[in-house]
Each structure stands twice: as structure tokens, then as C-alpha cells.
Simulated scan of single mutants.
Amino acid sequence: MGVGAGLLTLVAAYPGAKLAGVTDPLPFSVWLWFGVGLAGVIVLAVGWRTAGWWRRGTAVVAVALAGLVCANQINRFVGYYPTIDSAVNDWTDTPLPGQVSMSGLAHTAGTTKLPPVGRLVAVNIPATYSHFKHRQELVYLPPIWFRGERRPALPVVELIGGERGGPGDWVRLGNAVQVSDAYAHRHHGYAPILVFADATSRFDNDTECVNGPRGNSADHLDQDIPHFIEKMFGASHDPRQWAVAGFSMGGTCSLDLVVEHPDVFDHFIDISGDLAPYTSTPAASLHDLYGGNVALEKANEALLVMRAHGKYTNVNGLFLTSTEELRHQHESEELSTAAAKVGIWSRVEISPGTHVWQFAAPAFATAYPWLANQLALPAGPRHETRHTKPA
């Protein structure tokens, strides 16, 4: 019975991942241990009445161990917790390395000596325009921000993670702070401000960065955050100096936010994003993200948005995907071709890897100098009014 239950589970679970909302492929070892665990549960339920206490206890332990191994296999694959310490620190909300409070930030600003590294500060950004119930977010300030009383109006990059995660993922898993510090070290302390944004409000709330039943995520990203960062940290107001970069869901968001709001953002790095905002199936996406509103869905599909908008100015970006992601490769090429028709320069880059943070982190590190160069203000004024929604 146990073998039969295990085989049945594997047959049902492996191709049925999409039905469970798991749209990214998991290795066979995950489904193997999932099958073992579920088989144990079935055997335990069927034989509970007739089994002795020691068999019951052994079965319970075996099921628990199978579940633990399955969870560990998933973690090894996605790289979400590289070490036990990183898991404990995340669960206990331990401050990230280099993180300071807003009050601590005031004591370090205005120095005459350039700090060796930047600082990470936790911020509570008012949801003035979106009313989006987001979590605490993080801002990286490069060394140049701390020197002198008159700070330069620095460029900004919003960083968005996957559908399941939090604002700190780009710090813990994407190594974005180390990448930026290394760049600043080579450029006399200069680097963009990084905003580690919360696009989902909680771990399992896949908003795809749109306004809808799951919250006004788009308004938070293109209204709340820019206004706060510009006012609090003296950042640039120029869309030529604002960018969005993201992985997985965040990759989809990066392109969508730029083509929908070129008055706010001009540059994107789309790492393994989808063709359009998507949850598990087309019907589920329409329901979950837009409450069944087809017009709203079309207003958030990059291909349709670009076609309706027409010619863009000074907008560019990168599509980064891995050798194992054939669908993402095709979709990136399709998006890049459509972008070129409306004046958006882009390039598709394919590197070894698969749809995991172990691929996204080095891909971002490689693309970072290109992005920093794009954010350097070009010659000549640009007059474009930012469209602000009523608070």
C-alpha cells in the first residue's frame, strides 16, 4: 500500500504543480520526498486503529522527517536560506548586516570623511497614495550620501523580489548591497540609492505589482516610494535617474512599471520575468489580480501598453534569463522585439542557470555597472510632468 500510495502521489504531484500554484519547476527530489511523506500519511491513517503504539510513533516520526527533508530540498534548490543562521535571523527579524535606524542615520550623515561602505536603513513609508498595507522596507544609501552637508541628488533603483518573499530578499539573497558597495569603492563612493520595496505586503500575496483585489501595489511602487525617497533622502526627481530591477515576479514588475509610468522610471532590469502579470492560470490571474476586470488586465500587459503608448524617449533595459528557462527566453525576445518598435532599447542576455536566486544574484551583479551608467544624468534638460494621484 505504501509503495502504491507513493507512486500515485508522484504521478499526481509532479505534473500537477501548476494546479497547486507552483509555476516554477522544482527538482524531482522535492516531489520524491513529498510523495514519501504523503504516502506515510496515507499508511498512517489506514493502519492507525490496528497498529501498536510504537508503530504509530515510528510512522509519525517518519512522516515528519520526510516533510523536513522535502522542505530542505526546496530550500537547497531556491537558495532562500543559505545557512541556519540566515533562517533564524529572518524568523526573528534580526537586523541585516550594516543596517541602522533612522535615528542612527542622523549621527553618521554630514561627515567630512567618505565612509568605506554604504548604510542600510529600515523605513516606514507612508501609503499616502496607495493605502497599501505594506511591510517595513529598506533603503541603501551609498557612501557619497554621507559626505558633506550638501548631498548630490542621487539616482534611485527600486528592487523587487519574487511572489513569495520580503523586502530583505535582495539584500540576503541578491547580494545587492555588496554589489553596490563594490561599485562605490571603484567610483569614489558614488552609487545609486537602492530601495528594497515591498510589492506584496506579506509572504504569500502575489500582487504582480498591479492595483487590484490584493492591494494597490502599483500605486505604492510608483507613487508612495518615489515621493518619500525624494523628500527624505534628497534623491533625484528626474525619471532618467530612476530604475526598477526585479527577479521572477519582480522582473515582470520592472518592465510593466517602466512602460506604464515612463514619467517616473526610465530603466529596467527584468530577470526571469513573465510576458505579463500571471498567477497560476489565465482565469485565475484575471480573477485574483483584477477581480474579473478585463480592461484592467489589458492595461497591465506590457505588450498592449507599449503598443497603445507609441514612441518612448530615453527608456531602456535588459532582459536577463537562464539557459534552463526556455519559456522565459522566448518571452524575453518577444518583449524586446516589441519594445524596439516603440523606441525602447533593450538586450536579451542568457546565462547558465535556472529560475533561482543563485542565478539572479550574479546576473544582477553583472548588469549593475550598465544600469549605473544609464542612471548618470545625460546632457540636456528633460521636461516631463510626473502624474501624481490624489492622496
Rank of each mutant, 00 (worst) to 15 (best):
K311G: 01
A299R: 12
V294P: 03
L304I: 07
G251F: 13
M306F: 10
F268T: 00
T281Y: 05
D274E: 14
N293G: 09
A302S: 14
T281F: 06
A295M: 12
N316T: 08
G292L: 07
G310M: 12
N316Y: 03
T279P: 03
L289C: 13
N316V: 00
G246H: 06
S254I: 00
V258P: 01
D263I: 03
E301P: 02
Y278S: 06
V264N: 00
G273I: 01
P282G: 08
N316L: 01
E301I: 08
I271L: 14
S248F: 07
A299Q: 12
L286R: 12
T279Q: 04
I271F: 07
L296P: 00
H261A: 12
A245K: 02
V305P: 07
V315A: 08
A243F: 14
F268Q: 03
T281V: 00
L289I: 12
D288W: 02
V315H: 03
D274K: 11
M306W: 09
G292S: 10
N316Q: 15
A308R: 15
S248T: 04
L318K: 12
T252D: 07
M249Q: 14
F265M: 11
F265A: 11
T279N: 05
L304T: 09
L257A: 13
R307T: 14
L303Y: 07
N293P: 09
N300R: 14
T252I: 04
R240N: 01
L296G: 15
G291C: 07
E260D: 13
K311Q: 14
A284M: 12
A276Q: 10
D263R: 06
A276Y: 08
T313K: 10
V244Y: 08
D288L: 10
I269V: 15
Q241A: 12
A243R: 04
T252K: 05
D256P: 02
A243Y: 10
L286K: 11
E297S: 14
V244A: 11
L255K: 00
A283N: 06
N293A: 14
D256G: 06
A276I: 00
K298T: 07
V258Q: 03
G310R: 13
S272N: 06
G291F: 09
A308W: 10
G317N: 06
G310I: 12
F268V: 01
S285F: 08
G292K: 09
G251W: 08
S285I: 03
A308K: 15
G317P: 05
I271H: 00
P277F: 10
M306K: 05
Y312K: 07
G291T: 03
S248N: 10
D288N: 15
D288A: 13
F268L: 11
T313G: 00
G310E: 13
